[in-house]
Design a protein around this nucleic acid. Structure first.
Length: 552
RNA sequence: GCCUCGGUAGUUCAAUGGAUAGAAUGCGAGCCUCCGAAGCUUGCGAUGAAGGUUCGAUUCCCUCCCGAGGCACCA
């Protein structure tokens, strides 16, 4: 709808870029533009004159009866849609349901690769992974809904130097039986023990490096153990992904790119982008604000940076994406700007936009970064379990779903770029601005719809004149606009915020406007509104990766 | 030092350069003979500081101040 009006204005004013906004205050219509201000500036006419001029032309171009009125307020033009236009829109929701707001894209869809989650083998997923996983999945859902072909790729950390210490520890102190009981927990303990002992005995570090080296050279035993670590870790991760409703199209860990690495280094040297220094190979940016990156160590082994470049090459070749989005913590901003710059110099992604979709950290209650050493890292599974327990206090049957939804919504309702202070009470909040509140609204609407099963849904907006009803209608038609905005800015919190407001309005609606006991005509209209409301809530939540409940 | 994010009610968060800065939580006052009180109605309360651009700045630019993080032949 916003786009429709923007196009109309664009044609009327003969301007390419026209900004249309959704005014906060209903007194300013359904949509609003400040175009007259812009016009006035360019043509040096008073804003009101410009506004009149534009209004006349819009009136000429708009379909008959589309606008109830177009008001001039200073340099603003405020558009109020007619009942007919609103009715058509709500009826469209009832007809299209989960497809309402899905744009029809002509031609072949463009591809976007989204890199998200990316946990490390042999380490449990912690609340730090929550953000990448949840935000990443929401972005995937939203972009897909907008018509893109989206490839979600889980870039597992399965090839780091941490395997050296792990291999050493497992071979020397390992115990199969304990390993089987809680594989990841056991590996973490080994890892911690190794580093404690290495402090007293620095020779161990050399041993670990030797193990890493053997692994990378293809030593059979090390490979076998490594594969086992990967296998058990993935099994654990998949449990969590199932709980969270997260799905990838590809899970290609760092090890997958291993064979490409030396070729990349050779190529970088050949192109003159990289140079040798003290036996290592590095890419120099000659920019004091961007430190150089090493892509091959003097012992010939490769790094995170090398793998990331290989990953770009692979993704570009395999999927031909217009964009690759990295849903990775803000902490890695420098790393990605280096990688993107390197990719530019190497010309390996000239047709593809590389973008770091940063997100802030979850800080401990002290406001500082959580640390494993201080034992502040909270395991994701533990968080979900606690959420479930919390939900059980109120609702037995769907506690798992409600709890998971609360955790997801907690994350998604924040601007992804800012840090969040992690607080159990808030993360598990089941009241106020929370998933359970929205789920509750949905299930109440469903309940009404069930009770009115026999009744026809027939919308007549001339009957729905109360403030509460008008607010719902107004909010509903914004759904496609909000999804579009969330997609173009990659900001799921726009959608979360919208759904909360919509739930708010729906609550006020069914509180003040009885459906079943209403007079004939009015009842059918209210029922239609309730149905449209529930459809939009459901689809909106689905895009955020939150499942609705029929009863709770 | 350089770079990335932030600084908004007591607290935790919103607000594509717009109109009266919104919520949640907290505290106070109401609302269950009426589709479900995880709810509804209502009161209290905020833009770090100083400049600049603009008809208009929480938003953009500059200079400070405060917080978090990053600047390895780690990931």
């Amino acid at each position: 709808m916003l786009e429709k009006i923007a196009n109309l204005l664009s044609e009327a004013a003969k301007e390419e870029e026209v900004k249309v906004t959704i005014p906060e205050n209903p007194a300013f219509g359904h949509y609003s533009t400040n175009l007259p201000f812009e016009f006035a500036k360019m043509r040096e006419t008073p804003p009101v004159e410009a506004a009149k001029d534009i209004r006349d032309r819009v009136a000429h171009l708009a379909p008959k009866g589309f606008f109830e009125r177009v008001d001039i307020a200073g340099g603003f033009l405020n558009f109020t849609l007619s009942d007919k236009a609103l009715e058509d829109e709500i009826n469209l929701i009832l007809k299209q349901k989960q497809d309402y707001g899905r744009p029809r894209m002509p031609g072949r869809p463009e591809t976007i690769v989204v890199d998200y989650s990316a946990p490390n083998i042999a380490k449990p997923m912690n609340v730090g992974h929550l953000r990448s996983t949840i935000i990443g999945q929401a972005i995937v859902n939203i972009l897909r809904f907008r018509g893109y072909r989206v490839i979600g790729d889980n870039h597992i950390g399965d090839w780091g130097t941490q395997f050296g210490s792990l291999l050493y520890a497992f071979k020397n102190w390992g115990n199969r039986r304990d390993f089987r009981k809680d594989p990841i927990g056991y590996l973490v303990n080994l890892y911690v023990r190794f580093h404690k002992e290495a402090e007293a005995n620095p020779d161990l570090m050399a041993e670990a490096r030797a193990e890493t080296n053997k692994l990378q050279k293809g030593d059979r035993e090390n490979r076998r153990l490594w594969r086992e670590f990967v296998k058990v870790s993935l099994r654990e991760f998949n449990k969590t992904y199932r709980r969270l409703g997260v799905r990838f199209n590809a899970t290609l860990g760092e090890s997958f790119y291993e064979k490409m690495l030396s070729r990349i280094v050779a190529d970088a040297l050949k192109k003159g982008v990289a140079e040798k220094e003290d036996g290592a190979v590095k890419i120099a940016f000659h920019d004091e604000k961007m430190p150089d990156i090493v892509i091959e160590k003097s012992d010939g082994s490769h790094l995170y940076s090398t793998t990331d470049l290989a990953t770009i090459i692979y993704r570009v070749k395999r999927w031909r994406p217009v964009k690759i989005l990295y849903v990775v913590a803000n902490e890695q901003a420098l790393h990605f700007s280096q990688i993107f710059k390197a990719a530019e110099l190497l010309k390996i992604a000239s047709e593809t936009e590389l973008r770091h979709v940063k997100f802030g950290m979850l800080l401990g209650e002290s406001g500082q970064k959580m640390s494993t050493r201080r034992g502040e890292f909270i395991k994701l599974e533990e968080l979900l379990d606690r959420a479930k327990e919390e939900a059980e206090k109120i609702e037995k049957r769907s506690a798992e779903k409600v709890g998971v939804a609360a955790v997801k919504y907690f994350d998604l309702s924040h601007d992804r770029q800012s840090d969040i202070i992690f607080d159990w009470g808030r993360a598990l909040n089941l009241k106020g601005n929370s998933a359970p509140y929205i789920l509750y609204t949905y299930s109440r609407l469903r309940s009404i719809l069930r009770k009115a099963e026999r009744m026809k849904k027939k919308l007549d907006l001339s009957l729905l004149k109360s403030e509460a009803e008008k607010k719902v209608v107004r909010q509903l038609i914004y759904f496609p606009d909000i999804v579009a905005e969330a997609a173009s800015n990659l900001m799921p919190n726009y959608l979360a915020d919208y759904l909360f407001k919509l739930a708010n309005d729906l609550n006020a609606f069914y509180e003040t406007s009885p459906v079943i006991s209403a007079k004939k005509g009015l009842a059918e209209s209210r029922l239609a509104l309730a149905a449209a409301g529930s459809a939009v809530l459901k689809q909106g939540l689905r895009l955020l990766g939150i499942e609705t409940l029929e009863k709770m």
